[in-house]
Amino acid sequence: MTDKKEDTKNRAAMLKSLREKHKETVEKTQALLKHNQSIRKQIRQAMQSGPMTVPEVAEATGLPSDRVLWHVTAMKKYDLVREVGMSGEYYQYELAQKENQ
């Protein structure tokens, strides 16, 4: 047990010192993460109402449609949204189950 604790502690210390070493990039990436998380939140909220196309999400969130497309693409790749057919010239996406809950 103590060994495991020791390990966890060492690991935390190692990560911390690494974070210090890569301070600049870590901070930059953290800012990016925060920004993306807020966008994702908006997109998820907009998509609560059911399947939507990218322009519809863009309209609902006020985000530029190319950014919405990028995020939806990312969410699709990691199974957070899925494609559910087409509406006109656009594909529709809906939140995957775990995101819906």
Binding site: S65, L69, T73, E89
Partner: peptide, 16 residues
Amino acid sequence: GPYGHVLRPSDGKEPD
């Protein structure tokens, strides 16, 4: 590919 379809990057429209 990223979209799995041929879509244009500005809004995901299927180009005609």
